[in-house]
Design a binder for these strands. Structure first.
Length: 670
DNA sequence: ATCCTAACCTATTCAAGGA
DNA sequence: TCCTTGAATAGGTTAGGAT
């Protein structure tokens, strides 16, 4: 066998190009085990020729009709190799590409489609950053997260750094340094290309010595001193949960993710997806940096007495960092890493500077890097963005050095540890009956599995309502200044709900990160994001900021217009748009606007009614008056009004939800 | 404006297979 | 037997095209 595909009907450069990578795929390791070959390029071929598909039904799917609950056939190794190659080349093949794949494998189109779907899901799952629960668990060492809803951690042991994974925390405690610029996927696929060597070294290097809790962290995380564990227990609900929500995600969020500096990566800090139909990637700065930039922002919180109050984050103290860290902090974090819309937009360079800096087409004609928008799930984009070949700069070098024995290995250990102990009570993750989708959303207990799962829209998501930090001061001011400019925006369908983002990180929060406000066209071309941002509600995953809401105005559906690359220059918004992938179930885009029935787009015709409870609708434009509270009291006043019950009808339910959650936070959840 | 369709998503279930 | 992996399903979202 000298070709990958049995009989490629049409030579697929993508497939052939992807072959070398194939051997590095984690999923091929199992197959590679059957052979002692070390020639990577031969691996997939050997699989075909030497290792007959074990156990697998080699019947074409069309032949054997499977009963619904009957036996499931496993994809043959051969098919899997082909599919993997195709996936590496293009995770979202269009119909033609799918058909081409179908011709190569013994699967029908539907099965191929499902395979790709599952494959993408798998990818995302692997690249998913640590959840706040994981992080919280890490931070508290041997803590167990109790209960089925997994929302309130409880002390079970002293927070001492005794486990290897706490090394991660130790690293995280230096939370202003963009230490890790690692692709999440690389955490799962250690053996990839030239990082292979580094990875090996990583694996052999010891993890950093567990450190004691740095004083600065203790200072920055005001934690009540409990005299007894019982007290801790008592306050676990209202304190630690708050701690989690207030500090953890903002400081340690996606420690597994690296991100690139826009000043170095000429690509607006947006990881590039190589000729992929996948748009499911968005760059985001590590929360560590955001924590620094979001310091002293007022936020709605609850005190130990359960009362709502406005708190300000203790500022990151750069002085507490070692000089090297401080430098990286200053150079990498502060100037340009911001958390999306909650930060001040900046003047962006012309799009030509962006496109000019892109790799020339001669080297990547079929691989023209596509500036993706939106989401950060595309591990391949991470791979590219973090690939030393693609981006070898000072930051990268530093990150390389720092990655030795650092979070990369620790995260892997963490994940493996937590997963391997499933059912046995992972200290990091609760046992969820072997459910792998223990995402944040999955943490919420299902009321009744037999009943239809209520959609977690903004209106339903208490979290979404609660997590409406007042960290939008800058934006509020920007809104004010931009209010008059709203007419310039081509945005077509402002959403009724806020697009503001919690500084906290849940799984999907990464989607809310702005890749770079120095270079991200989102803010230059979509400044309406501030103007139309109705304020004070958290952008839920795949929120309306996702480009599809904007791309309407400038591009056609990229999914249906394959020649997207040509749009990069002509359509700035495209830089943020890929194809879909902004279709997460949670989004704030005023889904209620949609009327029932088939036309889900028709809802845009209805007038939005936004209740912002502003006492002073004295802005110039009606839009601004509805949307933007005055900058000065944007945060505090609204919170107070909210807590006093002076809320719009649409927020009555919010108040109830808040009350319920506050009650829970006080320990009434038992 | 509505309906239809395709494509995508997340969440989940469950069979297969390995430890 | 337990656990992981992956195939498959369900329900939902989005967007383009047709009516």
């Amino acid at each position: 066998m000298d070709t990958l595909a049995p009989t490629p009907s049409t030579p697929s450069p993508q497939l052939s190009r992807a072959v070398p990578d194939l051997a590095h795929e984690e999923e091929h390791e199992e197959l590679a085990q059957s052979t002692s070959q070390t020639e990577v390029l031969d691996l997939p071929l050997l699989r075909e020729s030497e290792t007959p598909a074990p156990q697998l039904s080699s019947q074409p799917s069309g032949e054997a009709e499977r009963h619904p609950k009957g036996k499931r056939k496993r994809t043959t190794a051969k098919d899997k190799a082909i599919l993997e190659a195709a996936y590496n080349a293009n995770p979202k093949p269009d119909k033609a590409a799918r058909q081409d794949i179908v011709n190569r494998v013994s699967l029908n189109e539907k099965e191929v489609q499902i395979w790709f779907q599952n494959r993408r899901q798998n990818d995302r799952r692997k690249s998913r950053p640590l959840s706040p629960q994981e992080i919280a668990a890490l931070r508290y060492g041997g803590m167990q997260i109790l209960s089925s809803d997994n929302t309130l951690p409880v002390y079970t042991s002293e927070p001492e750094h005794t486990s290897p994974i706490q090394a991660v925390l130790s690293l995280e405690q230096e939370y202003s340094s963009p230490r890790e610029v690692a692709s999440p996927s690389r955490l799962d696929h250690h053996e990839t290309e030239q990082n292979h060597e580094d990875t090996l070294q990583e694996d052999t290097l010891p993890l950093p010595e567990p450190q004691t809790q740095p004083q600065e962290e203790q200072q920055s995380m005001p934690h009540p001193v409990y005299a007894t564990p019982a007290q801790k227990q008592r306050h676990a609900g209202d304190d630690d949960s708050l701690l989690m929500s207030q500090h953890l995600p903002s400081s340690v969020g996606y420690l597994s993710n690296r991100w690139n500096h826009p000043a170095h990566s000429h690509v607006l800090s947006t990881p590039i997806s190589f000729n992929r139909g996948d748009d499911s990637f968005n760059n985001f700065p590590p929360s560590s940096c955001s924590s620094s930039t979001s310091a002293l922002r007022p936020r709605l919180s609850t005190g130990l007495d359960g009362k709502a109050e406005v708190v300000t984050s203790p500022p990151q103290n750069p002085a507490s960092l070692p000089p090297s860290e401080l430098q990286s902090f200053d150079s990498a974090c502060r100037p340009s890493y911001h958390r999306g819309p909650s930060e001040s937009p900046v003047t962006l360079p012309p799009i030509s500077t962006i496109t000019n800096s892109l790799p020339s087409s001669q080297s990547a004609a079929p691989l023209l890097p596509r500036l993706t928008r939106g989401r950060s799930r595309d591990v391949h984009a991470w791979e590219f963005a973090c690939d030393a070949e693609n981006r070898e700069d000072a930051l990268t070098v530093q990150a390389k050095h720092e990655s030795r024995g650092s979070a990369i290995a620790a995260i892997s250990l963490l994940r493996s540890t937590s997963s391997s102990t499933a059912g046995g009570g992972s200290p990091l993750q609760p046992s969820r009956s072997n459910k792998r989708n223990a995402s944040i959303s999955g943490m919420t207990p299902r009321a009744d599995s037999s009943t239809k799962k209520p959609r977690l829209t903004k209106g339903l998501s208490a979290t979404g309502r609660l997590e409406t930090p007042n960290n939008n001061n800058i934006w509020a001011g920007k809104r004010q200044s931009l209010a008059a400019d709203t007419a310039d925006f081509s945005y077509t369908k402002p959403k009724s709900s806020s697009l503001f983002i919690s500084p906290q990180g849940n799984e999907s929060d990464k989607e809310n990160w702005s890749p770079d406000e120095n270079g991200n066209p989102r803010f230059s071309y979509h400044q309406p994001s501030s103007a139309i941002r109705p304020t004070n509600r958290r952008l839920l995953p795949s929120g309306p900021l996702s480009s599809s809401n904007y791309e309407k105005t400038t591009t056609t559906n990229p999914r249906r217009t394959p020649a997207r690359h040509a749009l990069i220059e002509s359509s700035p918004s495209f830089l943020l748009s890929g194809n879909r992938a902004n279709t997460a179930p949670f989004y704030g885009g005023g889904r209620g606007q949609y009327r029932g029935g088939g036309d889900k787009r028709g809802g845009g015709a209805s007038e939005l009614r936004i209740y912002e409870d502003f006492a002073t609708p004295n802005h110039n434009s009606p839009t601004a008056s509805r949307r933007a509270p005055p900058f000065e009291d944007d945060g505090l006043d609204e919170v107070e009004r909210f807590m006093r019950g002076e809320v719009s009808p649409s927020k009555k339910g919010d108040a109830d939800a808040v009350a319920g959650l506050l009650s829970l936070s006080q320990g009434n959840w038992r």
